[in-house]
Structures are given as C-alpha cells and as structure tokens.
Design a binder for these strands. Structure first.
Lengths: 240, 240
DNA sequence: TGCTAACTTAGGTCTGACCAATCGGGCGAG
DNA sequence: CTCGCCCGATTGGTCAGACCTAAGTTAGCA
C-alpha cells in the first residue's frame, strides 16, 4: 500500500517509520497504548537514537502517535482523524494559493450527499444537535458566534450521515473555509436570515426522512453560498 | 490562520519548523529553490544540527520540501499537492477501519461532481489520458490490469476537474476501494463490458463539454457499481 | 578530446552526554 | 493516620562532534 513502499527509500529512519506504521495500522499497538521508549527501540532495532527519534517524529506528524514527555511519557498510538486531514488540506490551500473556488466546489459535491444520508440514517440524537445549532444561529450574536454556529450545523449534518469519512472531509473543509473566510465581512442580517431559513428547511427534510428534498435543498443552499462568496471575492480582487 | 500557532509548543524543532513553514508559505523561498544547508541553518539559528534536521523532516513529511542528498542537494521547496492530501486521507481510512459502505457513499458523492467539473474544464491533454485509460480497460488483460486501468480512468477524471482537493480525495478513495475490492472476484466479462460502455459514454460527455450529461452518467455508473459491490458483500457475509 | 580519479559539498547515521518535564513514592508535619 | 512536599527515577528534547554516503566538479592523465 504504498506511496513510500515502492522505493526502498534506503533511509533508515524511513524504514523504521514505515515498519512501525504498519504495525500500528495492523493493530499490534491498540489505540492509547505507548510504543516502546526510544532507548528501548534503540536496542531492539540496533539503530541510533537519532534515527529512532526521526522515525517517531514522522509518525507524529502523520498523526499516528502523540508524544508526551516526562515519566510515563512516550509515543502513544492514536488514530489519525479529521485534524490530520484538515491540516494537510490547509497546507495545500495555502501552498497552492488554492482559489476559494476549489474549496467551494468540493463542498458542493460533498454536502448534498451528506444531507441525503442524514435524511436516511439520522437518529433522534442527531436531530437534537441540529436543532441546537439552529437555535444558536438564530440568536443575534457576534459575527464569530454566527460563523461558529454555522459551521457546527454543517458538521452536525455530516455527523448525522453516519459516514465517518464524509464527516472527516466536512470537518476539514469547514475549518479551511472558515479560516479563509473570516476576512470577508459580507455577512449582513439579510444573509443571516436566508441562512437560518435554509437550514430550517433542510433540517425539516432530514427530520421527515425525505432524502430527495434534503439533497435538493442543501444543493441550493451551498450553491447560493458559493456564488455569494465568489461575487464578493471578485469585488475585493478588483479593489486590490 | 493558525492551527499550531495557538500553543507555543515549546519544542525547539517545532518552532523552527513553524518558522520555516511560514517563510515558505509567504513566498520567501520560491518553489524549486533550496533552503539553506543544514549546517548553515545551525549557525543561523544557533540550534544543534539534530534539531534543525528534525525541523526539516517535519516539513518533508508535510510535503513542503523534498530533500535530496549529495552535492548540490538540500531541502528544495515544493508546493504540497494531492499526494499529501491523499496520503493523509489514506491513513484515516486505514486507521479508522472505515466501512466499505462509507467508502462507496463518499465516492458517490464526489465523482459526479468531478465529472461535471471535468466536462467544464478539461483540456485536450486530460482527454488524451482518459482515452488511454479507456483503451487499457478495453484490452482483455488480467483482473489486476483491469482494476488498475479502471482506477487510472477514475483518477484521470478527477485530474481533469482541475481541483486539487477533489483529486486528492479521489486518489485516496480509489486506492482504498481498490485494495478492499480485489479479493471479491465479482468482476466477470459482463461487468467489464458494462464498465467500458459507461466509461466511454462519460468520456464522451466530458469531451463534448456537457456537464449535465457527465454528472448524470457518472452518478448512474458509480451507483450501479456500489450496488453490485454491496450485493456481493452481503452474499459473502452470509456465506461466511 | 574524452575518461577517470580525487575533491568538495551536502545530507545520513552514530555516540555519548546533559537538560527538561513528569510522575511516584518516601518522609516529615499536623 | 493523613496530607503535602520534595527527591529521584523515567522518558523525551537538545547538544556537540565525528564519521559515512551520495553526487556533482574538477583536474589530470591517456
């Protein structure tokens, strides 16, 4: 499976990292348990501590372990989650100067499906979270509060789809969109009202187990949002 | 934009990595140029070489630099691309033991949009790749060859969308689905023929710049595939 | 002129020492 | 006997310096 397995890589630290990664993913070290201490790995692998440490560092960056210092510290195994995807997506966005367009396109492709699945599989608990998010959005709070509640609702829809992967994508996307949007203050009371209305309507479809309505309304909602953002972006681009 | 900036982290190597990352993203080191040599960074930062090396390693894992050995080697700046997204998504899929259903659902949500964008933005080069993949699929090769060519075609559609995020997601998804599917030999000549036909039809829509047809046909194609896989999976589940 | 060998520069690994963060347990005060 | 503080053990973090390996550059020889 690979990526790095194709080429022997020859670098000792890569080899060790690869081996440890495979052992972790194979379940040899259950989540939450610690890998052997560095000095222990040194005697086991007959490599220097420098090399061992570089390997652990690689795993840390990949989100497979979390390293704690101090006694009873060590490299604790964890499952890479949305955070890891979000950070790499964030880097791509910043590095490639990805147009906001690409982000929005991606979201337009994912969210309607989330809504459809949510309408099919939602539980009562999911509904409660959605309702709570809607209430928070309706409250006339600060812009930051509004944006946060907005993100919460969208993520809640993804969670209600009971699809871990879509949820992860949405979390990562929301974060990236949120981070890139906060400069543009195009959110006025009008936009807020429209948003609240759309969310309520979609929530209703999810509540009623109506996948087709959910997907249709969500599609319209995110599409409208995307157009609004792009319009503003064009304006600012011209301004600058 | 933040993410890691919130917590000082206190680890010297993280601090250096963070600083270098910011400088790279700010454009201080244009793509393709090399960062200062390790020993040079040592004198500049007054840190040990160990620490400097760990920092560079972090950037390498994050896909921001590519390290080459030998004279005129060094850490060459590059923009993180789909590969980086794909690998982190791949880790999530493997790490979380994502269900096949979830994979297929996700693909059903992403690919139609890829097809739509491909129909809008495809270049002649993209078309050439698609045609080549179609030819490879049509050849009566081994099962492995067929599956590989199949994946190549699907990835080519994503690439033709010219959306780095979607491409990265699709790369990871395709690989994961491929890896989980090759055991189930439900691919007979009939399935092959159907696949070839569907691909040609979608390719035609992309060639003709017909987004609606592309999205419709792709939707049907991946949906049919998903149903076939799930049916087989149910059967095997009962068998076992 | 063309090829090879030595040199030079850069990353890769090793050793061994010491620093820093934690946690556990022992010991003394109340 | 209990609570709290301090010491020390364990584990990661950093440092310094040496040597190895990879790969261009260049000089010298045929």
């Amino acid at each position: 499976m690979a990526k790095a397995a194709s080429v022997p890589a020859s670098k000792a630290s890569d080899v060790l990292a690869h081996e440890l990664r495979e052992r972790i993913l194979r379940g040899e070290f259950p989540e939450g348990t610690a890998l052997p201490p560095e000095r222990e790995l040194v005697v086991q692998t007959k490599m220097s501590r420098t090399t061992v440490r570089e390997s652990l560092r690689i795993l840390e960056v990949q989100g497979l372990v979390r390293i704690k210092t101090g006694r009873s510290g060590g490299a604790f195994v964890q499952k890479p989650g949305e955070a890891s995807v979000a950070s790499s997506v964030g880097l791509v966005i910043r590095g490639q100067q990805i147009r906001m367009t690409a982000l929005l396109e991606t979201r337009e492709s994912i969210e309607p499906q989330c809504a459809r699945l949510a309408a099919k599989y939602r539980t009562d608990d999911d509904l409660a979270v959605l309702d709570a998010a809607n209430e928070a959005i309706a409250r006339q709070g600060s812009l930051a509060d509004f944006l946060q509640a907005n993100v919460d609702w969208h993520v809640a829809v993804a969670v209600a789809s009971h699809n871990e992967l879509l949820t992860g994508f949405m979390r990562a996307l929301s974060r990236a969109i949120y981070d890139s949007t906060d400069n543009q203050g195009f959110i006025d009371d009008d936009v807020r009202a429209t948003t609240v209305k759309a969310h309520l309507s979609i929530t209703r479809a999810i509540r009623d187990h109506d996948p087709e309505a959910a997907v249709r309304r969500m599609d319209r909602h995110v599409h409208a949002y995307a157009e609004a953002v792009l319009e503003v972006e064009e304006r600012t681009a011209i301004d600058v």
